[in-house]
Amino acid sequence: MKHSFKVYLSFIALTIFLISCSKERYIDEPGNLVPKTVDQDSSLPSISVNGALLHSEAFGPEDSTLIVCIHGGPGGDYRYMLNCKTLATKGYRVVFYDQRGAGLSQRFPMSWYKAQNPDGINKFFYDELRGVIRHYKIHPSQKVILLGQSWGAILATGYAGKYPDEIDGLIVAEPGGLKWDDVKEYVGNSRSFKLWSEALNDATYLDQFISGKEDQHEILDYKSSLIGSTNEIVGDVGSDLGSNASRYASSRSGAVVNAAAFELGEDEKPDFSSGIQNFSTKVLFIYSSNNKAYPDSWAAKIALVYPNKEIFKAQGVGHSGMVDQVNFWTTTMEPKIISYIHSL
């Protein structure tokens, strides 16, 4: 018994000694657990829009039709949409940007978002998209097509309804909902909250290991990445970008902007379909077969508000699969999008 006790004590002492000898490493230091943002790493491509440094890049001829890719979240990033950059080889100018506070774009404290109320969504999502378009649009007759996925599709719809004369085409891939109640219902349906599920403890058990204050972006973004990168319900299996992947494997969630957007949504109860009845150009509405939270009936309900539309069901992929699975993109989605653009 005494011998066992000594062995146990020795093990603890050795462990403490080894840990105390190691170099201190902080979980909130940029670059340790999550990649640095554009304001922390000047080698990343960026543009300045409305007082924020945004991670952004564009491919293809500068004066050709703009296709602006708008990522999901709020708080996601554009990396999973990079398959779309093959459109540049077909003669289009393909634009990617991470929204303010998301991806590798500059972070802002929660207080900044709260200070934008009322009308915060208008101020920091619509105005930002407008700024991005203005940055890349080099002549007045240059056409602009929005390609949004998930939250990006919601934002694109809202923008087209708000500025119908500024947009020449609209491609929306699985907007969860356009009216606030539909948004909340979809989000609830797309996540599992079974008390006994692995998904639940994967999300909640983490909190005893890592905790972060309201504006400790590195910690909050890291935790957000850990709990939201795959989702069996919506059929997401992780991006397959093939050779379209960027030279740097860096993806980062924007936890604060995500929380802020939902708080703003609860306050404002936005209707992102407002004004879309004035957008008479045909809309390409895409949804997937593998998203259990997005059945045919839900797609029909959400698509109802678009006055002129073509509905396309992406077979064999999930919520993001229409853009983040390289094989599906190459064989099905890219030809479909090119065909849609030619039809305008």
Binding site: R25, I27, N32, D207, G238
Partner: peptide, 22 residues
């Protein structure tokens, strides 16, 4: 999977000082 899809240069190892508390 994390290194391939999220962050290739993530730093593994022991992190201190304290990483959390409730």
């Amino acid at each position: 999977w994390y290194k391939r899809n999220i962050y290739a240069n993530v730093k593994d190892g022991w992190y201190e000082p304290a990483t959390g508390g409730n």
